[in-house]
């Protein structure tokens, strides 16, 4: 079992030997293929938080984001023999996560279609049910109000999925255009265009706060 260490750690915090920390992603993949269990632990350590954060911004649902992050790692683990180093490992795992997230968003849309029975009154906040409960204290920033953050979170969550993935990868995860193009399997021009359009939608949403 590749992740025996998780069980042994008691707290569930991933640990990995020092020797793996300096290895590249591809080297870790090769080591995992060769039966080095700690190598996969190191991979999980590297990507668990960024991936969960990305999925959270995509889905605006923390539990779902954690579940899909887990599913992404499971898929990587069981398909590790088929992994090709054509792309960076981060591209590979973000692509898996993106596909899972988009599938989930589409599922939700279908569920929402059936759940709209008229009982729910339009209150100008159709994404309300997806709002996460922020457990972390927010960073102090006098220039940006909590209300503004809430609005931008909602605005991102309300973006069409094709813009949302590109915006989150670019603005939240800080990926380059090339990386985003690879993850989303798009051309570079299309990727830039989507990001630009997505930013335009978001800009309109927070314009009133900016004007104050």
């Amino acid at each position: 079992m590749a992740l025996d260490k998780y069980g042994k750690s008691g707290t569930g915090v991933l640990e990995s030997t020092v020797s793996f920390e300096n290895l590249s992603d591809h080297e870790l993949i090769d080591a995992t293929r060769n039966g080095e269990k700690d190598a996969f632990t190191e991979i999980v350590n590297r990507y668990r938080n960024p991936l969960t954060n990305y999925l959270y911004r995509m889905l605006n649902d923390y539990e779902e984001a954690v579940d899909l992050a887990q599913e992404s790692f499971v898929r990587v683990y069981f398909a590790i023999e088929r992994y090709h180093s054509k792309y960076a490992f981060s591209t590979y795992i973000y692509r898996i996560a993106t596909n899972l997230a988009i599938s989930e968003i589409r599922k939700r849309k279908r569920r929402k279609l059936f759940s709209l029975t008229g009982l729910r009154q339009a209150e100008g906040n159709e994404e309300k049910e997806f709002q996460p409960k922020d457990e972390k204290p927010l960073p102090e920033d006098d220039l940006i109000s909590d209300e503004e953050r809430e609005v931008i979170e909602k605005a991102i969550a309300a973006l069409p999925e094709k813009y949302r993935a590109a915006i989150v990868l670019r603005e939240v995860e800080g990926k380059t255009y090339e990386e985003i193009a690879d993850i989303l399997e798009l051309g570079l021009g299309t990727t830039k265009s989507r990001i630009s359009r997505g930013r335009g939608i978001l800009r309109k949403k927070i314009r009133k706060y900016f004007a104050r």
Partner: peptide
């Protein structure tokens, strides 16, 4: 644009729960 970027960057980062590894281990 700058304000939007700063606002997005100010959004809280979520982390995996402490038992993420345990759950992943059990699942695998």
């Amino acid at each position: 644009e700058v304000h939007l970027t700063r606002t997005i960057q100010s959004l809280p980062q979520v982390e995996t729960p402490k038992d993420f590894g345990f759950r992943l281990n059990a699942y695998i």
